[in-house]
Nucleic acid binder design. Structure first.
Lengths: 233, 233
DNA sequence: CCTAGCATAATGTCGTACCATTTGACCCTA
DNA sequence: TAGGGTCAAATGGTACGACATTATGCTAGG
């Protein structure tokens, strides 16, 4: 006699709508760039009120699955992926989880060391050129006294891109974000540290160009290791 | 709980509210478990309409920062971290980003290999016991023909916990989720593979108990490497 | 014929009022 | 004391209207 009745509806209408649209995306009925019907149309098609539709769109937007533009020819568009949104979400979570900056730095140490062999193997000329260019700009900024951790993060993020593995690149980027705030304070306390870091960035590019994972690992261990020491825990 | 929030001005109102509450959480004025004022109170405190407040709550909920309960004594509560929410978000994102399962597996390979030295160094008796216990249950399930990738994921997630680094553990967990679907298909194609995997899990625990990072790395490389091969890309 | 500027329509955003639903707390009775 | 019923607090949902923003097309003047 069990199992005769099934739950009639899952609590909230908006989550139903979200699930429907997510499913449509998963199954390829909606692809990035596609436009969803206007709110007022969805209201009619789904037989719900505009508020519910809006709620659903807010959720999808927060998840990074759609982007909403206002005005004529506006509306909800299925987005190409927006890594920075996920990065921010993870950052929020890390903060809530009472993750200490030193823990994040340790994670960086582990992860960036591990991806170096891949980077050495796969980096192409475009990658190397991009890294060099970042170094150039960073050094110019340093001379002008405008160097900050954001530039350093740019280098490390691009380094992740050298693996030509989207997932690795995404995580590399994510690991930069949460740190910026606490690092920015550390940097002010020790403004000279930036110069050494820049030299190491250069050396790192050379090691990758030479396809020498061991040398790259040694440099990176020193480089991020010093950052770890600079962070009081 | 009065006077916590100030009226808003620019852009989309809901995002302003989200930012205010996020800031309150970041600065510790709101901690996990705390309850936000009711929608209608926030409406008055912020000088906006319920629609905006609701939008903000939906966004915060989708981000995993608050949980909304209905009914008396209900309302919006700042949540303890909800890794599975972010994991799901990342899964969606990875799908959209055209990340192939083999790319995710490669990331796992890189990351899990790198965290082994930490795990070997820091695993305590409780960690080892937990891993053994997972192995026990997995083997029992295997004998009963009920072994699936979720059990394997459990082992790998707990392995991340052995580093005693919250951030590392979180990433290890997150990396399991997106794969489950595609792996489930692969497993069906080769049901015998599970047994070998279980033996390797045992061997891995032994290596960690012996504080032998090299042996652990060798086993893990073989273990995840075979998974990588099993995934067509 | 071409261009600047304005009118218009499409679309999301915000506000208000009202009713429905859920759920815990309290009280009342057997 | 146990059980159930009622109440109140809170979110969930609907309807309608007004406003803001933007692309497009039309018109008037050069």
């Amino acid at each position: 006699m069990n199992g005769f009745f099934t739950p009639v509806s899952t609590g909230r209408i908006s989550t139903d709508i979200v699930d429907q649209i997510k499913a449509a995306i998963r199954e390829g009925r909606l692809a990035p760039g596609d436009q969803l019907p206007p709110e007022r149309d969805l209201t009619r098609q789904l037989g719900v009120s505009r508020v519910s539709v809006r709620d659903a769109l807010r959720i999808l937007e927060a998840t990074g699955l759609v982007e909403v533009k206002v005005g004529a020819r506006g509306g909800a568009f299925v987005t190409a992926p927006a890594p920075h949104l996920v990065a921010e979400g993870i950052a929020d979570m890390l903060r809530l989880a009472d993750v200490t900056p030193s823990e994040v730095t340790e994670t960086r140490l582990v992860f960036e060391l591990a991806l170096l062999p891949l980077a050495c193997e796969r980096a192409d000329e475009a990658d190397l050129a991009a890294l060099e260019e970042i170094c150039d700009r960073a050094e110019a900024a340093f001379s002008a006294g405008a160097y900050d951790v954001a530039r350093s993060a740019e280098f490390h993020t691009r380094l992740g891109g050298c693996t030509h593995n989207t997932a690795v690149a995404l995580f590399a980027e994510v690991l930069q974000g949460p740190l910026l705030r606490s690092l920015q304070q550390a940097k002010r306390a020790d403004p000279a540290a930036g110069g050494t870091g820049l030299l190491e960035h250069r050396a790192l590019v050379d090691a990758i160009r030479a396809r020498d994972p061991e040398r790259a690992r040694a440099i990176m261990a020193e480089h991020v290791g010093r950052t770890a020491k600079r962070i009081a825990h």
